[in-house]
Design a protein around this nucleic acid. Sequence first.
RNA 1: GGGCAGUUAGCUCAGUUGGUAGAGCGCCGCCCUUACAAGGCGGAUGUCGGGUGUUCAAGUCACCCACUGCCCACCA
Length: 886
Amino acid sequence: MPQNLPKGYEPRDVETRWREHWETTGMFTPDPDDPGEAYAIVIPPPNVTGLLHIGHALNLTLIDVCCRHARQKGKNVLWIPGTDHAGIATQNVLERSLAKEGLTRHSLGREAFVERVWAWRDEYGHRILDQIKALGASVDWSRVRFTMDEGLSTAVRKVFVQLYKEGLLYRGNYIVNWCSRCHTALADDEVEHRQQAGKLWKVRYRLADGSGEGIVVATTRPETIPGDTAVCVHPEDERYAHLIGRRAKVPVLGREVPVIADTYVDREFGTGALKVTPCHDPNDWLLGKTHDLEFVQVIDDKGMMTAESGPYDGIPKEQCRQRILEDIAAAGDLLGEEPIEHSVGHCYRCDTVVEPHVSVQWFVAATKLAQAARDAIPGRTKLYPETWLKTYYHWLDNIRDWCVSRQIWWGHRIPAWTCEACGELVVEETAPAACPSCGGTALAQDEDVLDTWFSSALWPFSTMGWPERTKELARWYPTTVLVTGFDILFFWVARMMMMGIHFMGEPPFRAVYLHALVRDAEGRKMSKSTGNVIDPLVMIEKYGCDAMRFTLTAFAAMGRDIRLSEERIEGYRHFVNKLWNAARFALMHLETMPDPMPLESVEGLHHRWILHRLEGAKEEVDLALEEYRFNDAAQCCYKFLWSMFCDWYLELIKPDLQREDRQGAARFVLWTTLRELLVLLHPIMPFVTSEIWRALPSPKEGDLALEPYPPARPGCLRPKEAADMEFVQGVIVAVRTIKAELDIPPSHKVPLLLAPADDAQTGLLEANRETLTVLARLESIGMGRDIAAPKASASAVVEGCKVIVPLHGSVDLTGELARLDKEIGKLTKDLEGVQKKLANEDFIAKAKPEVVEREREREQKLLGAQATLKTQRERFASALEEGGGA
RNA sequence: GGGCAGUUAGCUCAGUUGGUAGAGCGCCGCCCUUACAAGGCGGAUGUCGGGUGUUCAAGUCACCCACUGCCCACCA
């Protein structure tokens, strides 16, 4: 129902109302049987412990734009929301909260601890979901999922067992990245490498037989010396050739180890001799395997020295480093110490230095699953922007098997059991009653849980009910597009590709759109410690959700990071306000529904102009969104609303609205344009557009969120008349410019003389006398092909038409002289460029004819304008000499 | 070491097939013109990082260089 809008837009009340409306009506809950092309997106599930940050806001805004636009296009849209259990992160949060009570997870025990996590989730897990609602995301709340839901857990177990039976998942002893604080293995990509200052020590290993000077190795980690089982040199290194095959003594411990040769050694680095510690370095692990060395573990899973380390047994590794250096120095074998910059791995969850650690772990044979994921792009799945293609390929081409077991308690427990009687390993979806090998009933389940990304990898189909054959899967798998940040291309996207293809036979998405990271105004990553975070909820509170959404959309240019600052959001709030006020103006004249009329034949140049431009905007916004050019869509809307609709059209129809005979067309075109504009803007700014839509008169009740995209009206495309309108606008601007530059107040009405270049212009200008008078604020208009300009007058040329404003004594005439000189200068410069081109024979001969023609026309126009202004300048100068004006 | 981006107005950034350099913010001037001062009207500002090449024509295509940022690998 039509109603008045309050003077100022109050986002808070409006947003609350629409949020509740969208949620309670369930209008974003699709039925698989609904008509329309299937369109599905799964949310990148935020961590259940997480709080909404600006990155989520960007991600969810872009997805929401896609979904709302798809609905407008008549598609059957499913957007599944949900959260991720985030194993290590969540466990850390709970452990911190336990610590405040003086408890640890060990003091609590596994079962009680997991219960506590669930209780925590039930109490706080909805926070992030509520925050998603604050953004206006049009998700289907009836289908919200959690990665540890029963259904999803079933899917995880099924996948695990099937992969195991296919030989694509195995258990093995291997050197893995170990976080001694989180007390778990980490996958390769969960380790963050950072350059860090360290020290390189030179340590002498004496030969076993006591001969010679021994061999000096360089090491940054002397605490691993007790675990050394070889010294390695390059086979072609002459310095050490005579030592190969002999035996050396490990400092302090005195254990004898062989001196071996391997081309892995870099002769240039350090001393060219390398100590080999197979249990505590991944490269040494490989050397140990190839040279069949001993494997001695001297640091345990908690970072303490083991009994194997002899005198250092039981002390922390950091302390061991100090002690062993002192001991080596005392023995006279510490031969040097120098600073070194080297990269050190840190746990991506807690930042503890990661230790290579040998242990029994479960691995997914990613090496075997990678090829299919690689081949799917770009044929079956498109990647936007394409620049990520190489990165994606490179990662898959160099992939190593994926360590999926984690030694924590919060997560999917590994469905593997060991028979305590015979040692048989049983991998099944449910706990076996008895050992299939010996019939024993004492079976111990594996203590480990799965990497969080294991369940995330199944998200596109597990959320739709797999392994059951649901209607959802039939209707919406594969999903249409995945919209996510590029930072989880490997963690998540590539693994979903592998799992989706393997288990569903089809990649999980038709397209992947990777958006940028949101950074601060200086381009730094936002982080709490830097104190440069922009909290989306605070922004919504201050400026309204639509302003923030529009800002994020307008800055989402493909392949570029977004530098965000609060001022930008504040700036776009003005845009929301502009729309609001334009609507208020429209409503003043649209208290009742205007009478419909065929728009293709509506009279009035300005109506035809705005309808023509509207067609252009409709096409451009649609195209931009189809291609994920969000910023282009936003910019197009911005320009249309502000520069065309508000700046010109609303001003142009003001006279119409006062006149009985003309208000019919004006009201209907105004109504149509505003309504279609609201549809275009709605995906980006759902709240304010919905509110205005509801206030406008309408032939039928209905939500804007369910309004179809406006169909094209080819009959309204009128390029010629649009250009005519813009010519008239040019004349108005020329008068305004003259006034502004000569310090004549805009409201001061001046007489105007027009000398059109041809009859067409004459007709056009005659027909638009009223428009000219009102918008340029004129006192009178004199018109004629060869009208004479008074000497004391200011002039300009628009499309060959002379625009003359006679001046009188009160204005500063020297100002006009300067203005003319500036204009003539500009024209002359342009003219030189054009004439240079036209003088070039090659240009005439080789350039496309229409280009040459365009340049010729331009030359004529410039020549005409230049001549006119030059003449005017002379006359004006003489007027000045005669005594300073009329 | 390998790869990928970026370098355009004071700032932040657009510039889809090569064909007259744009927006927002900021700045300057004039205005309360009955939707909007969170506004209106007008204005100034750029050898498009440097170089070479292709072309009648290059911000746009190719190659080289410089600087910045990111990713991957390695770092005893």
